[in-house]
Simulated assay, not measured.
Amino acid sequence: MVERQRADARRNYARILAVAEEEVAARGADASLEQIARTAGVGSATVRRHFPTRRALLEAVSRTRIAALSARAQELTGRGDSRDALLEWLGEVVAYCVSARGLAVALSYDDSAADPVHENSCSRSLEEAGGPLLGRAVRDGAVAAGVTVGDLITLAVGIVLATEHRGDPAAEADRLFRLAVEGLSPRA
């Protein structure tokens, strides 16, 4: 009987996650947990057992995208100009956050008061992945010392959240990201 419950729980988790991915893609971070439960054919208590918080749900939905961004950071580490590699990766983080509704919100959760059980695994993964890229750019003098990957992720998330309701969020986010990178000074 216990084995059957485990198999049922695994099936429920997979079904809930698949439905949640669709709902978050359609409605963003405010996707209704009750709607997810109805569509998955389970009770809302089952959804909450697997995902006790909205944050847990968003992080689970974003896990594949975070893994892809982390892999991309590894690909870019050590390649070409260190500033260009870092900016290419950050541009991809911005683009991913625009296309993957809910990802920016998942990355924006504050960990300052969180306990280790509830820390932001999405942010932590990206910070670990981007660390070598940023470290190399700082060593090369291409980025100011003291800048952290957390700072850069916060900047990217802020841009995405500020542009998500614009006519063309991807173009606006990219434009503002380039503005932040290049600064306000005219080109010489």
Rank of each mutant, 00 (worst) to 15 (best):
V2Y: 04
V2P: 00
R4V: 14
R4Q: 15
R6S: 04
A7R: 11
A7P: 02
A9I: 05
A9Y: 10
R11T: 10
N12L: 01
Y13M: 02
A14F: 02
R15K: 13
I16D: 06
V19C: 12
V19P: 03
V19T: 15
E22K: 11
E23K: 11
R27K: 14
R27E: 14
G28I: 07
G28C: 07
A29W: 11
S32E: 12
E34T: 14
I36G: 01
R38A: 06
T39K: 13
A40S: 05
G41F: 00
V42H: 02
G43E: 07
G43K: 00
S44P: 08
R49E: 00
R49A: 10
H50R: 04
H50T: 05
F51G: 01
F51S: 03
R54D: 04
A56I: 00
A56E: 11
L57S: 02
L57N: 07
L58R: 12
A60L: 08
A60R: 09
A60F: 07
V61C: 03
I66L: 08
A73V: 10
Q74K: 11
E75Q: 13
G78R: 10
G78H: 07
G80C: 12
R83T: 07
A85Q: 10
A85N: 08
A85L: 11
L87I: 03
L87E: 13
L87F: 13
W89L: 09
G91M: 09
G91K: 05
E92S: 11
E92D: 14
E92L: 11
E92H: 07
V93C: 08
V94P: 04
A95F: 01
C97P: 02
V98G: 06
R101M: 08
L107Y: 03
S108D: 14
S108E: 08
D110V: 08
A114F: 07
D115T: 15
P116C: 12
P116M: 04
P116A: 13
P116S: 12
H118P: 03
E119S: 12
C122T: 10
S125D: 08
E127K: 07
E128V: 12
E128H: 06
A129L: 10
G131Y: 03
L134D: 00
R136G: 07
A137M: 08
A137T: 05
A137W: 06
A137N: 08
G146H: 09
T148Q: 10
T148R: 13
V149A: 10
D151Q: 09
L152V: 13
L155T: 14
A156R: 11
G158E: 04
G158Y: 06
I159M: 04
V160K: 02
A162P: 01
A162W: 01
H165W: 05
R166A: 13
A171S: 13
L176D: 12
L176F: 15
L176K: 06
F177G: 11
G183C: 13
L184R: 15
S185F: 11
P186R: 14
A188K: 06
